[in-house]
Amino acid sequence: MADDPIISVRGLVTSFGKHTVHDGLDLDVRRGEIIGIVGGSGTGKSVLLRAVVGLLKPVAGQITVFGENVRDTNAEDYRRLRKRWGVMFQDGALFSSLSVQQNVEAPIREQLDMSAETRAALAAIKVRMVGLPDDARPKMPSELSGGMRKRAGFARAIALDPEIVFLDEPTAGLDPIGAAAFDELTAQLRRALGLTVFLVTHDLDSLHAICDRIAVLAEGRVLATGTMAEMQDVDHPWVQAYFKGPRARAALAQKESL
């Protein structure tokens, strides 16, 4: 069981019109790890995420999550699968007509038959777990800062105690302190809830701080996977530039000084 990948992608091909994004992409995600997906702009990191959660139909290839094929599930199976993962989109993607509390309650309300008091209590706990103050609960998404919206989006993603959370650039647009706090939050919730985290990011500090493994996307496939240290030895110009550039050195130096 332990070695079975929780997400397995084989020979994934996706394209928009004539533009092919992924061309035979393979990727395995192990249970309980935080995997960081990196790649230049337009290499299809977010597209990969959308394909794995079934928002986008690939041209070819196999995607299995929890050993079940995402592409060929019927509506009922997909519904059941969906309960076991949570997705946080780039800007939180909170429902703008609902308060934070209602946003976090929304997946519980849709998926489970639960009394209003229990639902409210559980949602309130999730809101606190992502580090939002209690008085943020009745607020509308438009009243929140970008960082708070991301946290609220995270709270909604973990509302149903999923086994996997997909995070799409969670630290983009946050100040370094906020970004570090978000990384810490991710790691802490992974420990507390036993999450597997599929993290699409550009943030070298996040990669250093919390990712167990890193998968580099380029040229339509996964170029390399491995730990941060292993990335230093990958012989590819983009990988070299990414992990040995000035920012990467700064992130590395910061980590070593800790």
């Binding site: 249970r31 309980g32 036993g194």
Partner: peptide, 10 residues
Amino acid sequence: METSAPQTAQ
């Protein structure tokens, strides 16, 4: 990697 989440689908 230890996890506390439910692991089985039963």
